[in-house]
Design a protein around this nucleic acid. Structure first.
Lengths: 130, 130
DNA sequence: GCTTGACATAAAGTGCACTTTAGGTTGTAC
DNA sequence: GTACAACCTAAAGTGCACTTTATGTCAAGC
């Protein structure tokens, strides 16, 4: 089974090596396998977990809620409904953020258009103030 | 000219009174007018500024970049091009965030669908484990 | 055999964006 | 005239998510 060093995982995921260790230390990752020299060897499963964590983190899930999800996952099948709740709650947040961003995108575009108009006016009378 | 108390501005904008004071203290707001008892009286201009700040803040602009924009604004017409740059840069970030969120929304929907399937299976054989 | 580099750990530090605290003034309500 | 609420200030504190530091181990290359 293929494994990856810290350096490799960091390069693949974009998370720093300290962040990977931090995530492991707070239980977001299960204890990572070690080589004989005690260096970490991440598995493909670890990688998938990390990519998942990175994704939900980047879209606004807190570390503590990520922990809650991981704990439920570890507890097994009978927590399926609760995990679904976490996912649905996050889906809601993601949707709400998208709506807010779409709103602000329109706002910015309108403002940017006004700025372009103002610039055109300034260019048309470059000596107006002197 | 209509003015608003701290309490009113807080209610309208959703920012806390300490946050409003904090924004003023770091120069994101121009010095707010005072009543005779030294209590703040916010103007409509202040309100518009606050709503703008709230909007860009909520979509990921840092306080320091907000400060940069406000400083440029105060400096007058000759900073128009630089302000436009700030707006365009933020527009870019907003667009990028929306793309990332859209991606994650798809990811979540796929995962949620799988969870629903799993739940259906569990419901179909409720005694499987016993 | 000694430097170098990649890892390890535990603990302390950092940056950001506020929030809370402590102590004070002012104007209305009883 | 005194209690109370609504504000004020400056300074310290908080929570989050990491990051940095100090110190140590181990294997490979010169």
């Amino acid at each position: 089974m293929k494994t990856y060093t810290s350096r490799e995982v960091s390069a693949i995921t974009g998370l720093s090596i300290p962040t990977l260790r931090y995530y492991e230390s707070i239980g977001l990752l299960d204890s990572v396998q070690r080589a004989d020299n005690s260096h970490r060897r991440y598995s493909d499963d670890d990688l998938r977990r990390i990519e998942f964590l990175k994704r939900v983190r980047a879209t606004g899930m807190s570390i503590s809620e990520m922990g809650r999800y991981v704990d439920l996952f570890r507890a097994g099948d009978e927590t399926l409904a609760q995990r679904l709740d976490v996912l649905l709650a996050h889906r809601q947040r993601v949707q709400a953020q998208m709506d807010a961003l779409a709103d602000t995108l329109d706002f910015l575009d309108a403002k940017i258009a006004r700025y372009h108009d103002l610039q055109a006016q300034q260019a048309a009378m470059p000596e107006a103030a002197s």
